[in-house]
Design a binder for these strands. Sequence first.
RNA 1: GCUGGGGUGGCGGAGUGGUCAAUCGCAACAGACUGUAAAUCUGUCGCCCGAAAGGGCUGCCCAGGUUCGAAUCCUGGUCCCAGCA
Length: 302
Amino acid sequence: MEHIGSHNKLLVVTGPTATGKTNFALEIAREFQGEVISADSRQVYRGMDIGTGKDGKGSVHLYDVVNPDEEFSVAHFLRLAVSLIYEIQRKNSLPIVVGGTGLYIKALVEGIDTVNIPRNESLRSRLANLSVQELQQMVPKSVLEMMNNSDRNNPRRLIRKIEIMQENQNRHIKYHRRSFDTLQIGLTADGEYLLERIIQRVMDRVHKGIIEEIQQLLAMGYTWDLPAMNTIGYKEWKCYMESPSDEHKNEAIALWIRHEIQYAKRQLVWFKKQQNIRWFCINQEGYKEDMKRIIYMWYTSS
RNA sequence: GCUGGGGUGGCGGAGUGGUCAAUCGCAACAGACUGUAAAUCUGUCGCCCGAAAGGGCUGCCCAGGUUCGAAUCCUGGUCCCAGCA
């Protein structure tokens, strides 16, 4: 399992939505003999293609790995991605992880301590209807004090904390960071330009048939309360699906665009704190050549 | 033209004499984030001074009035909506 030299290289392409990450990654894959792995929490769902923008379907790993009513999380991503990376490296190819799900990328690059502690369904169902205050009372003061204010008020985080505490200590096996020789490329764009691209892309997806895609998902029995359906590009259509009209359609599109913009901003907040990402602005002349130069230098170094 | 309803902060929408710079939702802005992360959560959100506590100013269509005190009551104006003509 030892990887040396160019055999343990890992290229990561990340950044906010609508910056052309996937297409760029596919281009690099062709030029550098690599394989693309998606690091996207929504592209894993089968049947959700248009709304999640699965470019290069057929030549990207980790698209379509579960059905929309199945569970998926960073832990699943990590297991799948790590074994794929090893496999690709073994073939002497370059693994290229591309995606905007910041947590997934971070988990892959920096490791994540408690991944080995799985969900405890019975515990979760017991806690499901408790209020934030009740949940807070279940975690020790010392732990609570270590949490920041927003986490302390976040039921999901509290439940996870409780879940972790319930596990016995020996399950606390830390996830050891794989020591990949990693280069992280970040793609971004000026505010104005990013907005234009987002709007353009939403309209494209409407034309490509997002409505039909959702109708199909609903026909297959998937419901609006699934986490998968709580996805930008899908959730906005609930009202329209229940009573189709031009008005509802326009509302859905407007909402979708807004959510997409908000999402991009949230991503940027996250990325601002991530170290070791080499950023490139896509509305700058020659950015692609610069990136390729950097990648080439890294790729050929030992 | 008559009758009824209504005009509140960027928007939607509470409030019907004091505890109201005005619940709440949305938007906006700032931020958090280690098994739902395209998710979830936090803070700010009239203007000015202040790190904060706090203080000052303007304010619920407009103009007057009643009252110790009005977004809330009265009068007039104006605009919108519904019903009747």
